[in-house]
């Protein structure tokens, strides 16, 4: 399956794009997707410890099992207010 990953805020500048499509085997976890993404975009890997991850509009952890049609978002710590 191919997972679409949306990047937000300055992560777009780090990666040079607003979204990435990552091919993953069925049954992959969110953590495995991130490992693959960081191989393709090492500039994002430097931010790994502070990165927030959501599937659709809900925060998810690395054990989340990816489903067909899932869309993932990666972004830095939020700063509203």
């Amino acid at each position: 399956m191919t997972v679409k990953v949306h990047l937000w805020s300055y992560f777009r500048e780090l990666a040079g794009c607003a979204e990435v499509e990552v091919p993953m085997p069925p049954g992959s976890t969110l953590g495995q997707l991130l490992d693959e993404l960081y191989l393709r975009h090492p500039s994002l890997a430097a931010m790994r410890n502070s990165t927030l991850v959501a599937v659709d509009v809900e925060y998810q952890g690395p054990a989340y099992l990816l489903q067909e049609q899932d869309e993932v978002s990666l972004f830095p710590p939020v700063q509203g207010g």
Partner: peptide
């Protein structure tokens, strides 16, 4: 509300 929104609501500023 102010504290929590600064933790979970995806808004950024520069």
């Amino acid at each position: 509300i102010v504290e929590e929104m600064k933790r979970v609501v995806p808004i950024w500023k520069r």
